[in-house]
Write a protein that binds this DNA or RNA. Structure first.
Lengths: 245, 245
DNA sequence: TCCGGTGTGCGTACAGTGTTCGCAACGAGG
DNA sequence: CCTCGTTGCGAACACTGTACGCACACCGGA
């Protein structure tokens, strides 16, 4: 109100191109969007808040990005660049695939908004970084000698996506709760016990949950990821030793 | 305007409890929400539209449901009741698990909004139907004699979730495109070819895509699901034959 | 030196969202 | 008959994503 009281064009110091920030570019927008997503989650990202953070007006963003969905696709692909896949070198395929799977997971957990967005997006899959990720995975499996690399990719990638989705959802609720992971587990324990009470196998299984409150939950999640991944990789190795069909 | 021009309380036929619909209940709300979600997807569901469909005002819904997120959790759990798991009967575990996996997938594809919501939801997992699903899965794996049923569940469930998420995202884009599945594939082919051009392994792999335009895409998806599932199940069977550790 | 044209920033407005408040009408119990 | 707790809801609030159109900065040519 006090800063711009009159529309008098008798302006003294004109805008003079406030060169604090290096202007406004698609790259800068995407970068800052990712920062916001990481910090506060999907529902905290609004075009207006993002613009304010960039010292810009909301409408300005639309000069560089067609729509919020497109911005999301760009963010997804940008983040996909962080996933590391070892080069294809034949016999060491198991270690390499394990590394690729771990890298996907850590990226997904570093950006917990990623899995659900991936699950909605649709055509973000055509982004260059996601493309080159798939490409490198395919190269790895063909170099290893798999007769049907496509199915191999489906198996391990689906597993990794599913596991990461579940974990990311959990991490999101953790950070929304404002509590630590073990703290939330402890607070949740009564509810879980009550819910699992009528289910004999579950109450037995969720005895682990009690452990999780004492030991480090993150380490336990790591172990679970590795264990189930090993199952999938075992299944894969069968396809390699007996190249039937 | 013409229906309620004056606030005169000289009302003749009072509301008289319009008994077309059986009033308004949490169950009815959730049911109708699922109908809307199935028909038009997540972003088409708003409290106001939902209320209108139930011949009610928007605010009325909040008498039966605390928040939209809670409504979503209820919808997720309601839909989870459709997933079928065969009873645990020992040696036939492979067929039974396959059936459970297929049932999860068909449910997810019947309600394509489910996977992304599952990935955001957080504590929907404590709903009674999801609980009993997990319970029946656990029963199945323990009856089969797996030394570590938890990891077995992780492996197959993560795979199924990941695959269903990807497929559901694809089906969502298909239905948003207003085209048929093979029609959309055909229209998308140029873009895909361009995107995969610099990636040798991918352009080879996506040669299948050309097939998909001619043959039935749904059948092809079914086959892919089964093939990768078999890999996971092979890995599982190893854990059973050699009960190491 | 001026002069258009092009691209960028953005104030404003619109239609829609989830949710809250407070009031009206009802059915049941005393 | 009169209360009381419950249910429905009109209106309002604080937001959201996005379209429109104007103002201004820059730049190549005259």
């Amino acid at each position: 109100m006090t800063t711009k009281p009159s529309p008098i064009p008798s302006v003294w110091a004109r805008p003079q191109r406030e060169s604090d920030q290096p202007a406004l570019s698609r790259a800068a927008i995407v970068r800052e969007a990712i920062v916001m997503l990481d910090a506060e989650g999907v529902e905290a990202l609004s075009m207006r808040k993002l613009a304010t953070r960039l010292n810009a007006g909301a409408a300005s963003l639309y000069r560089h990005v067609a729509t919020k969905d497109e911005l999301m696709e760009l963010a997804v692909d940008e983040v996909a660049a962080e996933i590391h896949v070892p080069p294809a070198d034949g016999p060491e395929w198991r270690a390499a695939v394990t590394e690729a799977a771990r890298s996907f997971r850590t990226t997904a957990l570093r950006h917990p908004w990623l899995p659900p967005v991936l699950g909605q997006a649709g055509l973000a899959y055509l982004g260059p970084n996601l493309m080159s990720y798939s490409e490198r995975l395919a190269a790895l499996f063909t170099a290893a000698g798999f007769p049907d690399p496509g199915t191999a990719i489906d198996a391990v990638l689906s597993y990794v996506i599913g596991m990461s989705t579940t974990e990311a959802a959990w991490l999101t609720t953790v950070s929304r709760s404002g509590d630590s992971e073990s703290g939330l587990i402890a607070r949740l324990l009564p509810a879980v016990q009550q819910a699992t009470a009528p289910h004999s196998h579950l109450s037995q299984g969720y005895a682990e949950t009690e452990e999780a409150a004492t030991t480090d939950p993150a380490a336990l999640r790591d172990a679970k990821f590795e264990a189930a991944l090993d199952i999938v990789l075992d299944g894969l190795s069968l396809r390699l030793d007996t190249p039937g069909s």
